[in-house]
């Protein structure tokens, strides 16, 4: 799907993704985490890639992959400002201040979060999240999304 770089379009994208995720077998918490990751990714494109301009174009592709593990793959592409992928890192969380949490959240709730420059311009992000089997978390009542209980 293609959307414009408008913050008011984030909610309908979340709704679409939530439906796709639930029908693919993710539970409520995993679905919430996937929607959060995509939301943060799109917010970054809007704010940093397009400097909050509302007319930038963003493409979102969603795939359900069965092998070797059942997982959802989401690719987000834009034509905005390019950034060195190596510079897109989580910040020190001990420094309590507003902002800068998006990348940390994205990396924490997905199994794959890879940025790359897109040719001829813009950025491309690949997010992947594996659907956890029931035996992986039979008694997991606190899905905080930490690395320990993330999907592997």
């Amino acid at each position: 799907m293609e959307i414009l770089s408008r913050a008011d379009l984030l909610a309908p994208v979340r709704a679409m993704l939530t439906s796709f995720s639930e029908r693919s077998g993710f539970d409520e918490i995993e679905t919430g985490h996937l929607a959060l990751a995509v939301d943060e990714a799109l917010a970054n494109v809007i704010r940093h890639g397009y400097d909050s301009r509302p007319d930038g174009r963003i493409w979102i592709s969603t795939y359900l992959i069965e092998e070797p593990e059942r997982r959802i793959r989401i690719e987000i592409e834009d034509e905005g400002r390019q950034t060195d992928p190596d510079q897109i890192v989580s910040r020190d969380l001990a420094d309590v201040r507003p902002g800068g949490l998006g990348v940390h959240l994205m990396r924490n709730v997905t199994d794959t979060c890879e940025f790359e420059r897109r040719m001829p311009g813009g950025m491309r992000l690949v997010l992947e999240k594996t659907i956890r089997r029931e035996e992986d978390h039979p008694s997991d009542q606190n899905h905080a999304g930490t690395p320990e209980n993330g999907s592997q």
Partner: peptide
């Protein structure tokens, strides 16, 4: 709510 609390936990807030 659980989903919101989860975000605070991941951000260690």
């Amino acid at each position: 709510q659980d989903r919101v609390r989860s975000v605070f936990e991941i951000a260690r807030l």
